[in-house]
Simulated scan of single mutants.
Amino acid sequence: MSFPPDKPWLDNEAGPLLRPYSLTNGRTKPTATLTLQSMVRSTGRMAPDRIEPVHAKMLELCRFATSVAEVSAHLHQPAVVTKVLLSDLIDWGAVTTRLPDDLPDRGQLEALLHGLQQL
């Protein structure tokens, strides 16, 4: 199948076609230790208009404590990409991070899994 040279090759359903490594400038490892359950929150020390749009979107999402998993889902990006970008914000002092207070223990998770398997 060929496309006319004067028409852009876009998939409107997919949205903007930007590779994740483009967002992270090729970086694959975050500088901060983050889990999917880590809670991140904006410090208000950085103006969103002075940073990249994806970082600004993250700051907006993190006005209230938000998990890394939620930020990743809202951005439609893999978790590792989200962690790398959040690490930038942590390094710049734009967000703080902590683990949630009520993490389930292994026994709770195994009981939940067993219950789900019984269904």
Rank of each mutant, 00 (worst) to 15 (best):
T97C: 12
Q118W: 00
Q37T: 14
L34Q: 08
L112W: 11
E70W: 01
P78Q: 13
Y21K: 07
T82R: 09
P20M: 06
L75S: 09
K83Q: 15
W92M: 15
L36S: 09
G26L: 03
N25Y: 05
P100H: 06
L23N: 02
H76A: 14
K29E: 12
T31L: 06
D88H: 13
E52W: 00
H74L: 05
G93Q: 10
H76R: 15
L113W: 09
N12Y: 11
P5M: 05
T82F: 06
L103D: 05
L116Q: 12
R27T: 09
K7V: 15
D102K: 14
Q117S: 14
F3R: 15
A65M: 02
R27Y: 01
P30F: 02
L23K: 04
I51T: 08
P5W: 03
A65I: 02
D88L: 09
T31M: 03
S72Q: 05
L36P: 02
L99W: 03
N25M: 07
H114E: 15
L85F: 08
P16Y: 08
P4S: 12
L36M: 05
S72Y: 04
T96G: 11
D102N: 15
D91S: 15
L99V: 08
V81I: 11
R63P: 00
T24I: 01
G26A: 04
D11T: 08
P4V: 05
D6N: 12
A79Q: 14
P53L: 04
R45D: 11
K83E: 13
R98C: 10
M1N: 08
